[in-house]
Simulated scan of single mutants.
Amino acid sequence: MSKNSQTLKFQENREQLAALSWTRQDAQSDNSWRVEVSAEVKKEFQELVASFDLTDAVLDTIEADDVELPLLAELAQRTRRQILGRYGFAHVVGLTESGFSEIETRLFYVLLSLHMGKMMTTYGRLHDVKDRGYDFRSVDVSVSKTRVEAPFHTDSTSRRIFPNVFGLLCLRPAMEGGRSLLVSGCQAYSEIADETPEHLPALFKDHYRNTVTPGDEKTSIFDNAFPVYSWGTFSQGPTLRYMRHWIETGYEKASATLTAGDAAAFDRLDAVLEKDENVLGVDLDAGEILFFNNCTVAHNRTAFVDFPEDDRKRLLARAWLQVPERD
């Protein structure tokens, strides 16, 4: 779709954009994004777990149709509606004091995900998010393998491989820091369109992205270019796909140079994404889950300091999902 067509799509659908836009004050005054796991759902799940031998292999092979969990299925659809709604994220709480073991908590997370959509296996069904001693700014690794503060971004640098939803299950929080930060990509677009529309052409044109997503190792950088904002390409509505670092290193791999206009547009987008009034911070305790709409919400996390003991270090489990946008 051409830049002009994209511009027209966004102009024609300003009401939909407004419905998907929010500020920190909006989110703090509305707790609909907080989804509680009821005692009944936990009891239903415990009865399932008691009926079979739970191993790591089960996490990789179990499917939604293998189990009868009507209450969890209803919870999954409530969570899905929230993720695809105005705020574009859901904070699932209620497992912290459940007494579930780590593998049981992981299974709950897998089944909740499977009842919303398909789990992608790009990194495996579950990818452990923990500090592995890397810094994405100097090595081509995902932010999930570092402890440094990340810039606002959406998941996946690949044109071909795109989760429209992803989740983060907290198994162990950090000793200090590691707070999740969320911002509405639609709110950011609307502010730019209203205040500095001269930056929109740079955000609608294709940009090279570094090929760091597993499965893209042999993909030519010239085949991995797409816009920051698009409509109807990666989802039925608006999509923000952005991490400036991977765009800049993509241009380096292509032996190309970002124009001054491109850099100015990214500066403006970064500034709007980072505005205090636009950013919601969420602290995750053990057993809590955040699901994000990877099309409409950009995320970030603060730097963190780990506990010295290996078995207490920060550990999250990430899942990439392909979730139907319509029932």
Rank of each mutant, 00 (worst) to 15 (best):
R24S: 07
S190T: 03
G232W: 07
E191I: 05
D194L: 11
D155K: 03
K145M: 14
N294Y: 12
F108E: 02
T55S: 09
I221R: 10
V139S: 13
S138V: 15
G133D: 12
L69A: 10
R132M: 15
D223A: 05
F108H: 06
P308W: 09
L95K: 07
L20H: 15
Y189V: 06
R81H: 14
Q16I: 12
T296S: 03
V228M: 03
F100M: 13
R314C: 04
H199Y: 05
R268C: 13
N278Y: 07
M120E: 14
A225K: 15
A263K: 15
F292K: 00
L112E: 01
T239I: 11
E309M: 04
V272H: 06
P201Y: 10
A317N: 13
M116S: 04
S21E: 12
Y242W: 09
W231G: 00
R106E: 04
Q187F: 03
T122G: 00
P201S: 12
Q11A: 03
W231M: 00
A298E: 03
G287W: 11
L54T: 04
N4S: 10
C186F: 03
H153A: 03
D283N: 12
Y134T: 09
N294L: 09
E325G: 01
N224P: 02
E40S: 14
R160F: 13
A174S: 12
